[in-house]
């Protein structure tokens, strides 16, 4: 009965999601597009390592990727 950890779908911030989103925008404040993309790359690496669970990360990667390819086609 070892539960496989799955990607969290529910609010992980106990109602404080707006603070998370505001912090994210603040981090990007004043950066040009290339710098912003660089910030995102570092952020993904840091958070990925923090999660440390490749099955969760693979699930997130496929959800994110599916959305991007869908939008790319439309």
């Amino acid at each position: 009965m070892s539960a496989v950890t799955r990607l969290r779908r529910e609010d992980g911030f106990a109602g404080a999601g707006d603070d998370f989103y505001a912090a994210l925008l603040e981090a990007h404040e004043g950066l040009c597009d290339v710098e912003s993309a660089g910030l995102n790359a570092r952020l993904v690496l840091l958070l990925g390592n923090h999660i440390g669970d490749l099955s969760v990360i693979r699930e997130a990667l496929s959800v994110a990727r599916a959305g991007v390819s869908r939008e790319g086609k439309s």
């Binding site: 779908r9 999601g17 707006d18 994210l24 925008l25 990007h28 912003s36 959800v63 959305g67």
Partner: peptide, 27 residues
């Protein structure tokens, strides 16, 4: 305000259909 803010905003909207957490970010 910027292309990146728009990317983040649109990603929240796109994920919101399927993911409850993203709905809490839609403002």
């Amino acid at each position: 305000k910027t292309p990146m803010e728009r990317q983040l905003r649109d990603a929240v909207l796109a994920l919101a259909r399927e993911f409850p957490f993203a709905r809490t970010l839609v403002n």
